[in-house]
């Protein structure tokens, strides 16, 4: 069943058309990759999905309901959040407070004890966060910050997590660690939409994927199909004509 569905969504930045009719879907329990060059509209798509950027036309549907016109804080309450590009941590607050605020949308409905338990759960997933609980988030290394950003998003107990370039600026070792964690997350039941420039790494863990070019989807398919596609290999996997 598709958890998320975009129907001919268009969106613009101050009059500049950024999405020219995007239709896609993400299935429950899967990792869906959005691939493409800089400026293709990948981040814009994520921002439209979670309500940070309004749609101009078309529809965003989540779990069978139209969420196109909801504010981001309302979308989070439905079980959909984003780990934004550049992580956007609350730098001056402690690691622990970042995680606590991650659960802000649940504070009214759920007990503080339940939320403390979830903080412990996230710390089990990312042990480094328990170790640095009282440090200011801004003092962590890039890889640690990425873990915290994912951990903070998980605290909202999302059904679907949008990840924008989780590998950006990370050392290769940290990249494989982050990707392994994303895979583990998905196995535990959180569906994922993954935006990546690191196409080969993304397709290794993804189930399905879309390729975007200038605000449009030009290719879609299973991860295997995309990995085998000549255009994808030439454009994103750095293979020469002779090799393909």
């Amino acid at each position: 069943m598709s958890l998320l569905e975009l129907r001919s969504v268009t969106a613009d930045y101050e009059g500049l058309l950024a999405l020219r009719g995007i239709s896609l879907h993400a299935n429950e329990g899967e990792i869906t990759a959005l691939l493409g060059a800089n400026g293709a509209g990948k981040s814009t798509t994520l921002n439209v999905i979670c309500g940070l950027l309004p749609t101009r036309s078309g529809q965003v549907r989540f779990a069978g309901e139209d969420i196109s016109h909801l504010r981001p804080d309302r979308v989070v309450r439905r079980g959909l959040t984003q780990v934004p590009e550049g992580r956007l941590l609350f730098d001056d607050l402690t690691v622990r407070d970042n995680l606590l605020l991650g659960a802000y949308s649940r504070m009214r409905r759920e007990s503080r004890r339940r939320i403390e338990e979830d903080i412990d759960g996230v710390c089990e997933l990312f042990p480094i966060l328990a170790e640095f609980a009282d440090r200011r988030a801004g003092t962590l290394s890039g890889g640690e910050q990425q873990m915290l950003a994912v951990g903070r998003a998980l605290m909202s107990a999302p059904r679907l997590l949008l990840l924008d370039e989780p590998s950006a600026g990370l050392a290769p070792k940290a990249v494989s660690e982050v990707f392994a964690r994303i895979q583990a997350l998905c196995r535990r039941g959180t569906s994922v939409v993954l935006v990546e420039q690191n196409v080969s790494a993304a397709l290794k863990i993804a189930d399905r994927g879309y390729v975007l070019e200038v605000g449009q989807i030009v290719l879609e398919g299973t991860a295997e199909e995309l990995l085998a596609n000549r255009d994808v290999q030439r454009a994103y996997l750095g293979k020469d004509y002779e090799e393909v």
């Binding site: 504010r71 981001p72 989070v76 959040t81 956007l88 407070d97 605020l101 649940r106 909202s156």
Partner: peptide, 24 residues
């Protein structure tokens, strides 16, 4: 207080604050 921390979060980064469910 949680509300105090949420206000700080808004000051540090509005988008991130909205993405954790804070009503700006």
């Amino acid at each position: 207080t949680l509300t105090g921390k949420a206000m700080q979060a808004c000051a540090i980064n509005r988008s991130a604050a909205q993405l954790v469910g804070i009503n700006i």
